[in-house]
């Protein structure tokens, strides 16, 4: 038996909006730790890892580990039927081939339930090694989204370079080229407006902007994004989900063969 009650139901809608462009079908795993998901896009270029910790739910009951295969477009369709302030409860019986989303209005005067069929998904689970990153950039998520959007209008790939001078986002395309340099800036009114660049070693990596832009669909989840770079590894773009967990996107670099 599974019963997860999330008072801030809109969070779940935002999570779905953040990943449904990248991944079509995925297994949601439920354990005593929390509600999680790991999935790759169909080309195996990007991976998303989501964790909503059990403590973040008002009520969390998961009698045994359960993996529920869902089509994310269908799940998003169902969640769209909830009100923005609704409490969402996810329910499933052991061995059931469906999951139920229950929506309660804040004043309890409207209660709906939507049942969705589950599906069998053959998915590989990958071990993500602990890593020492050459550089970690913490910046306003809206600024990162703007840079990715702006550069994608010029080129298809972005080179992200971190040096003593700051972090540079560069692209090149048929109509020209663009460079955006950000310097560390901690003299801001609010901590979430700061740009913090932690560099252990200079690093420069090339990525497909299409994926970066897809990751920025998570912007409504957090004011801050953290970008971790290492020359040997996929970049990690992380959005923290307030008091609940995180959504992390991993993107494999473009490599000179």
């Amino acid at each position: 038996m599974l019963e997860l009650r999330l008072v801030q139901g809109s969070l779940l809608k935002k999570v779905l909006d953040a990943i449904k462009e990248l991944v079509k079908d995925a297994n949601f795993d439920c354990s005593t730790t929390g509600f999680s998901l790991q999935a790759m896009d169909s080309s195996h270029v990007a991976l998303v890892s989501l964790l909503l910790r059990a403590e973040g739910f008002e009520h969390y009951r998961c009698d045994r580990n359960l993996s529920m295969g869902m089509n994310l477009d269908n799940m998003a369709k169902m969640l769209k039927c909830s009100g923005n302030d609704d409490i969402i409860t996810i329910k499933a019986d052991d061995g059931s081939d469906s999951v139920t989303f229950m929506f309660e209005s804040p004043t309890q005067d409207k209660i709906s339930d939507f049942e969705m069929k589950l599906m069998d998904i053959d998915s590989e689970h990958l071990g993500i090694p602990e890593a020492e990153y050459h550089a970690i950039i913490r910046m306003p998520s809206a600024e990162f989204a703007k840079i990715c959007r702006d550069l994608a209008s010029i080129g298809d790939t972005v080179v992200i370079s971190v040096s003593k001078e700051g972090v540079k986002f560069s692209t090149r395309g048929d109509i020209g080229a663009a460079n955006v340099v950000l310097r560390q800036n901690t003299t801001v009114d609010k901590p979430e407006e700061a740009t913090i660049i932690e560099m252990n070693e200079p690093v420069s990596l090339t990525f497909a902007l299409r994926y970066m832009n897809s990751f920025t669909k998570a912007t409504p989840l957090s004011n801050i994004v953290t970008i971790s770079l290492s020359s040997e590894l996929p970049v990690v773009v992380e959005y923290k989900i307030a008091e609940m967990g995180y959504i992390r996107f991993y993107l494999a670099p473009k490599i000179e063969e």
Binding site: H44, G127, P234, A252, K254, E257
Partner: peptide, 14 residues
């Protein structure tokens, strides 16, 4: 130009 690598090149199946 540089070629797109895949996630499975870096992370192993468990």
């Amino acid at each position: 130009g540089p070629k797109q690598s895949t996630i499975t090149r870096f992370f192993n199946k468990i």
